[in-house]
Structure formats: C-alpha cells, structure tokens
C-alpha cells in the first residue's frame, strides 16, 4: 500500500475505534459532573510512562504500559475513595488537586531525566503520527473487550451515573468504572497525548449531550461529529502541513463551538414556537438506554 494511503487508513481506523468507547465514557463523565477526572488519570498514566523512561524502559513497550496502569490504578482508587464530607469542598476540588499533583510530579521527574523535556512534551502532545498497525490492532482488541464489559454491566453503570445515592455497592462499581477509564487512558495517552486524549473523551460526548438527553442518540451524534471532525483534522493537517495532534484537537474544538451555536439557535427557535409543537425536541428529551 502507498505510504500516504496507508497512513490515512490507519489513522482513520484508530480514530473510529477510539471514539466509540471514549464518547460513551465521556457521556457518563459529563452526566456525573466529574469533568476533570480523566485529566487526572491521563496525567497519572503519563507519569507512569515517564517513570518507566527514567528506569530505562522504552516508551510504548508492555512494561511501560504496566507502569502507566499502576499509576492510573492508584488514581482510580483515590478518585473512588476520596469524597470530602464537607459540602463546601466539591469532588472537583479533589480532582483538581490530584491533577495538579500528578502534573508537578511529572515536571519534577522530567527534571531528573535524560529525555525529560522531550518525554514531558511527548506525553502532552502525543505521538499519534507514529502509530503502527500492530498498535492499532491491539487497541481494537482491548477496546472491543472493554466495550463488551460495559455492555454487560450497563445496568449498574447507568445507575452509577443517574441515581447513585443510597447505593452501598457504589464504591466498587465506581472503582470498576474508573479502571476501564484508566485502561483506555494508558492505551491512548502514549499515542495521543494528555490533551488530545482528553479531547477524544470530552468533546464528542459534550456535543452529543447538547442535542439529546437520551443515551443512544447522544452516543451516535457524539461519535458521528467527533469522527467527521477528526477526519477533517487529518486532512487539514496533511494539506496545510500543520502539526498533527494539535490540528485534530482544534478541529474537534471547532465542531464543539459550531455545535454550541447550532444548539443555541435550535433552543431559540423552539422557544418561539408553541410549547406543544416543541415537545420531543432538544432539551426536552429524557429517558435511558434500557
């Protein structure tokens, strides 16, 4: 296969697979209001990768992933357990503090390492340009397994998001949720970088949420717009000779802004028509996946 065609097929395949699970988990995260939890896990995965590099373990090797997983699991446990009892301290404060600590730990580590600067930069912007087919196949396999797990556990997972109060088993399911999020994090952060990984998780899900409260339509809208944005990003990056990861992120960001404008316009339009005619339209939809 021609080098350029191979590049496009590989990138688009990877993006399509990644977006399915990321959009679904993103919907959970947005509805639960733990917007920055993924940034904590992304940064902890990056920290684990950097610890590995510091020990001479090559980036992208199985051992490097194990270290990233170890650091991410610690983050998952902390996210599941640390819940301030003081109402004035929201869960987001804990998440913000954990993110800050993970970030500065990475900075301090980078200072002591040979490839510190390059590694820190790589964990932020990623190296998506350099993926190979074996990595794409591994990603597809693991994402399929995690997708199946979420399909099987969709009952408790949806309850976790929609009605977690007075549920004794909440911490265990919370931990399982964060573990699946952690696994996709350790797979995607070395490839896409912390920022783009966060974009994959949040932007399509946010777009989907703007247009539907129901799970399946939101998932389809999020995945579809995210995929189109990313494909346009890949093409733009190639045609305009611009850095890859940042261009993808910007393309998704542009779609997010566009979606905001469209959803606002739809909401304004709806408010101008009689209430009876607007039933079932944007913002009025409720319901679930089951």
């Amino acid at each position: 296969m021609n080098v350029t065609v191979n590049f496009f097929v590989m990138q688009i395949t990877l993006i399509a697979v990644v977006l399915v699970l990321h959009t679904y988990l993103g919907l959970h995260i947005i509805r639960r209001g733990i917007i920055f939890s993924d940034l904590v896990l992304d940064q902890l995965a990056a920290f684990g990768v950097m610890v590995g590099i510091g020990w001479g373990i090559r980036y992208g090797t199985p051992l490097s992933y194990v270290l990233a997983l170890g650091a991410t699991l610690i983050g998952c446990a902390l996210l599941a357990v640390l819940r301030p009892r003081n109402r004035l301290i929201p869960q987001e404060a804990v998440i913000g503090i954990l993110y800050g600590m993970a970030m500065v730990a990475s900075l301090l580590l980078a200072d002591k390492m040979r490839e510190g600067g390059a590694s820190l930069n790589a964990t932020l912007v990623g190296s998506m340009l350099w993926v190979s087919w074996p990595l794409v196949w591994v990603t597809i396999g693991i994402y399929a397994a995690l997708g199946l797990l979420h399909a099987l556990c969709r009952g408790p997972m949806l309850r976790l998001t929609e009605d977690p109060s007075a549920w004794p088993r909440r911490a265990a399911w919370d931990f399982l949720f964060f573990v699946t999020q952690g696994i996709i994090t350790i797979l995607i952060v070395p490839v896409a970088g912390v920022l783009l990984a966060y974009g994959f998780l949040m932007i399509p899900a946010a777009i989907g949420t703007m247009f539907s409260r129901r799970w399946v339509p939101a998932l389809l809208i999020g995945w579809g717009t995210g995929f189109v944005a990313c494909v346009l990003g890949v093409i733009t990056s190639y045609r305009m000779d611009s850095p890859y990861g940042p261009t993808l992120m910007l393309a998704m960001g542009a779609f997010f802004v566009l979606a905001l404008v469209v959803s606002t316009w739809l909401a304004c339009r709806r408010s101008t028509v009689p209430a009876g005619l607007a039933a079932g339209s944007v913002g009025a939809e409720t319901g679930g996946l089951r």
């Binding site: 990056s237 045609r239 261009t247």
Partner: peptide, 13 residues
C-alpha cells in the same frame, strides 16, 4: 514544533 503528516510522509518517501 512537532512535525506534520505531510512532512513525515515526504521524509519517509
């Protein structure tokens, strides 16, 4: 500045 796909593919070619 990180490289673009066009640059990397041209370099490889």
């Amino acid at each position: 500045i990180p490289p673009s796909p066009h640059h990397v593919l041209s370099l490889i070619e």
